[in-house]
Write a protein that binds this DNA or RNA. Structure first.
Ligand SMILES: [Mn+2]
Ligand SMILES: [Mn+2]
Ligand SMILES: [Zn+2]
Ligand SMILES: [Zn+2]
Lengths: 148, 148
DNA sequence: GTATATTTGCAACTCGCTTGCAAAAAACTT
DNA sequence: AAGTTTTTTGCAAGCGAGTTGCAAATATAC
């Protein structure tokens, strides 16, 4: 627990435990560390980012992957794939479903607090972005797979 | 050249050569085969799909990857990433920019001829899709990277 | 506290995809 | 059309994010 801000730390810890319980995940050190990290900073973070922020040598990278997959599975965490072969993770607040833009050159990532293509692209142009492209994919369960 | 439809084959061949020239790519057998395949069927196709459709042992998989990357680079081909770690490719007709839906269960992919989220999701529900999610990412060049 | 079930660390492995290099083919030159 | 230069190809080895099998460690249930 931090010496500087014991109260806030404690609140985060309690919230993390509550979230893990609701997700039916047992309370372990790696899970608490990873989830509270994602709760404190917005992200999205690569696994490398996350390990860098975790207490040094506090857990294996396989554990980080396993925990993140479980969090995604139980909707605690959302994923983005802004660069090929690099998954990024952020805490999934269902009230604030949103998307991201990455700069094709410097790879800076920004979160967009909105979800309508044209409107977003107009806003991005005003912000100085050029050569904007988007990728939009849908995922669902088709009629055939619903029937039986 | 096909015995059944020599005219159509010849036209495709000419179109393919024209497209390669416009893209400043030299005219080679693998490039012609891959591009004409993508011109004939809509896709999107994985590299495995493409190799299966190519004349048996007609070229190495490394060549397929290299050609596809060049095609993407010169905007002849568009990519989609509907499943993690699996790239799919289709001919990029700029007049028909569109997106896709994949079934979470059977992985069937459908092309959507439109680009507005709400409208698309309504249409998909009418078609029998359930549990629809989408992924929307933007890519651009940020203000800082534009200046210097 | 003990028994049972779950999770972790480690190292080996998987799998799309990429790459170095010599041989082959295309493009350019005359 | 033949010779020269440049590009592309095939092959096999390599890369790297992510996964997995298993024994030891930890959490949960009783
Ligand atoms: Mn975000
Ligand atoms: Mn399509
Ligand atoms: Zn930038
Ligand atoms: Zn289906």
């Amino acid at each position: 627990m931090s010496i500087l801000n014991p109260k806030k730390e404690l609140l985060t810890e309690l919230k993390v435990i509550e979230l893990l319980k609701r997700a039916n995940l047992s309370i372990t050190a790696p899970r608490k560390n990873i989830l509270s990290l994602l709760l404190k900073e917005h992200g999205p973070f690569t696994v490398e980012d996350i390990i860098r922020r975790l207490p040094k040598n506090s857990c294996d990278q396989a554990t980080v992957y396993r925990c993140l997959n479980q969090f995604v599975e139980s909707s605690l965490v959302a994923t983005t794939f802004l660069e090929k072969d690099i998954a990024r993770f952020e805490f999934n607040d269902p009230e604030h479903h949103h998307h991201h833009i990455i700069c094709k050159i410097c790879k800076k990532i920004e979160s967009l607090h909105d979800c309508l293509i044209d409107k977003i692209e107009q806003g991005l142009k005003k912000k100085g972005y050029q050569d904007i492209e988007h990728r939009l994919e849908f995922f669902g369960i088709c009629a055939q797979c619903t029937k039986p």
